[in-house]
């Protein structure tokens, strides 16, 4: 970026510029903890189990549910930051905050306090999807275009983004006379009282019409739902960002 870019985007000088910058920092700190706290709670309680455990990351429900629930806050935050500030970073900000919260919890809670190996509780990443979502909104400046192409890309990129992290946990092992993945073996060996095997919502249901190639179908289904979820959450974000004052509540 050249110095001209800064000058163009800065109507304030002197003390007012310093004041506005101080305000920026206050808001950034506020937003950082807000989105770690709020978005992480939303994700943990809607797709948490798939994200917590390596033996929940299946090819059917994980790629369906995760993008669907993770496109929510990014859309709502973009509705404010893009519309009113032309800042194309809402999605990346939310997902980055989520990952900060997730990694802290996995390390200090699951690993240090409760002895689970970190590799059993590796989180998934949606950062590639978020970067593309921000870029599409910025280049198109259109909720419709971002809903269709951004929403679809957000979901379609999820599984391939995470496959390089988790493929190696799908290597087969023979155990107790049966074929398991390494991920399944983590669930069996590392004892957890509250999440027995039968609780896993994996590889069930009727998304098998493409034979054994379930993942692309799940991803496209998620893409369709994300194209609907994105505008819904854009308007939720817009609605919450009302500037109204009322006399009575």
């Amino acid at each position: 970026m050249t110095s001209t870019d800064l000058e163009i985007a800065q109507p304030y000088t002197g003390e007012k510029a310093r004041l506005s910058r101080a305000y920026d920092y206050l808001i950034l700190v506020l937003a950082l903890f807000l989105f770690i706290g709020a978005f992480h709670l939303h994700v943990a309680l809607t797709v948490g189990d798939w994200d917590f455990w390596v033996d929940w990351k299946d090819r059917q429900w994980w790629p369906l549910v995760t993008p669907l629930m993770m496109i929510t806050f990014p859309a709502a935050v973009q509705a404010v930051l893009w519309t009113h500030f032309r800042l194309p970073l809402g999605a990346t900000l939310c997902i980055a905050c989520l990952l900060i919260g997730t990694w802290i919890a996995r390390f200090f809670a699951y690993h240090l306090w409760n002895y689970f190996p970190i590799n059993e509780v590796l989180p998934a990443t949606m950062l590639p999807s978020a970067l593309v979502l921000d870029a599409i909104l910025m280049l198109s400046d259109s909720v419709t275009v971002t809903s269709i192409f951004g929403g679809m890309a957000f979901a379609l990129l999820f599984y391939p983004s995470n496959w390089p992290i988790f493929a190696m946990f799908h290597v087969p092992v023979e155990y107790g006379g049966a074929q398991l993945t390494v991920a399944d073996l983590f669930g069996f060996e590392y004892i957890r009282a509250g999440t027995p095997e039968y609780l896993r919502l994996i590889e069930r249901g009727t998304l098998r019409t493409y034979g054994q190639v379930a993942t692309p179908l799940s991803a496209f289904c998620s893409g369709l739902l994300c194209t609907l979820m994105y505008p819904a959450w854009w308007f939720i974000g817009k609605a919450f960002a009302t500037t109204r004052f009322v006399q009575k509540i």
Partner: peptide
């Protein structure tokens, strides 16, 4: 993005 002046200037612009 955040290295630039953000909320007040951009809103005003």
């Amino acid at each position: 993005w955040v290295r630039r002046p953000l909320f007040l200037p951009r809103y005003k612009m």
